[in-house]
Amino acid sequence: MKNLKPILSELKYTLKVIRIAFVCFFGIGMFFIFSSNLSDILGSVLRVNSAYTGGEIADDFIDDSAELMRYTVYKPVTNAHWQASADYWQLNLEYRNASEEKRKASIYIDIDSIDGGSTKALFNPETQINFSDHPWNYALYISDGTSKLYDSEGNFICNTEYYELNDRREIKNRIPLKDENLMRVLGSKETWHYIISDDADYSGESISALEVSMTSQKNSKVSKKEADEFVNRIKKEFAESIGKTKNTDSIEKRLAYYKEKLNENPDDYVSMACYGSALAEKGGESSVFKAVALVNEAYTYLDKAAELSFNKEGELDVLLNRASVSAAVPQGVFGKAECGAKDFMRSASLAEDKKLKAYCYVMAYECYMKCAKKTDAFIALQEAKKMVQ
């Protein structure tokens, strides 16, 4: 009988996945589907001038293992007369965690169309950094909620437009293109960037510059198409792996079943989550006003179930129920996409099956995209790809 234990355990796990997947694929009504599609259609039709958002992206550097997990260099913007600076160059830094303190960092930049440059650290001369490969022309110093630009001789050039977002996780720097020499970045083909943490100790070691092509333009439409194709493939493969066996029980029958289980044991968090999902599903088949009330009621059960199940057996069931509902309800109405993304990410860490893990990651990607957390979305997508390599 001992040899049967692994088989029974695997069977139990498979049945659990099938039960959870029902909510993922069949538990959402047409009201939510149409509402989400409407948001997608509006998003694809409306276009915002890139000058409002920093310009076109020249290059993106993402390191999901570091505290500074994303550095984005934009192409310079010109003639945006409705902005504070009509001509500017934007550089973004995005950190993994929020900060109660002001961020501090130095960015040394070599611009290929400018001759000369310095090989010495400007703000901390004792810091031993090898800039010999790409002597820098300008240095951006971020400190105390401001950023200032200096040239390679240490002369102050200007203050930049400095913005902190998302609990100081993200810093946007817009460098006004007023300095005559700096304006040569407009004709540059390449720039190189060194990002130095203010408290870093490099002990004489060299660091690599980030090379940015200022002329190549990323085809975001192609990238999005490839991402969407990958996401759809993973979702299809997961659906096929569990079998599309739709539960024929009516919503009312399932509500009555889980309600009875909760009457027997009010702390049965798995039944609590299933009851909440069924309420949300009922909302999907109701009028708009009733749907909002039912979904809000559903989350009282889903949230309590998630709290009770943390680090306990059955947490995966609970989180996938809440995550699936969060992914399905309209973001513009309920604002639950980030909650869904975090639930899917934790579900991926709890899951044993690689197909389920990949599915959770691509669903997290979709949720993060809905709430405009593109860096987190990219990281989730990369994790999904690791599961199928």
Rank of each mutant, 00 (worst) to 15 (best):
N3S: 12
L4C: 05
K5M: 04
K5I: 15
I7W: 01
I7N: 02
I20K: 03
I20A: 12
F22Q: 15
V23S: 13
I28P: 00
I28H: 13
I33S: 08
S35D: 12
A51N: 11
Y52W: 14
G54S: 07
E67Q: 15
Y71R: 07
A84H: 10
S85C: 05
Y88M: 03
Y88I: 00
Y88N: 04
R96K: 15
A98I: 13
S106P: 01
Y108D: 02
D110H: 13
I111P: 00
I114H: 06
K120Q: 10
N130Y: 05
H134I: 05
W136E: 06
L140E: 09
I142V: 15
S147R: 02
L149K: 08
E153M: 09
N155D: 15
E161A: 01
R168K: 15
E170V: 15
R174I: 05
I175Y: 06
K178H: 06
E180T: 08
L182K: 04
H193L: 14
I196N: 01
S197F: 07
D201F: 04
A209I: 04
M214W: 05
V222W: 08
E229K: 14
F230M: 09
N232S: 14
K236F: 06
F238I: 00
R254D: 13
K261G: 01
N265G: 04
Y275H: 14
S286K: 09
A293Y: 07
L294M: 07
N296R: 13
A306T: 14
K312T: 08
G314S: 09
V318D: 03
L320H: 01
N321G: 05
R322Y: 02
S326Y: 01
P330A: 12
P330I: 11
A337Y: 13
M345Y: 00
L350W: 01
L350P: 02
A351M: 03
D353Q: 05
K357Y: 00
A358Q: 07
K373V: 01
T375K: 03
I379R: 01
A384V: 06
A384Y: 01
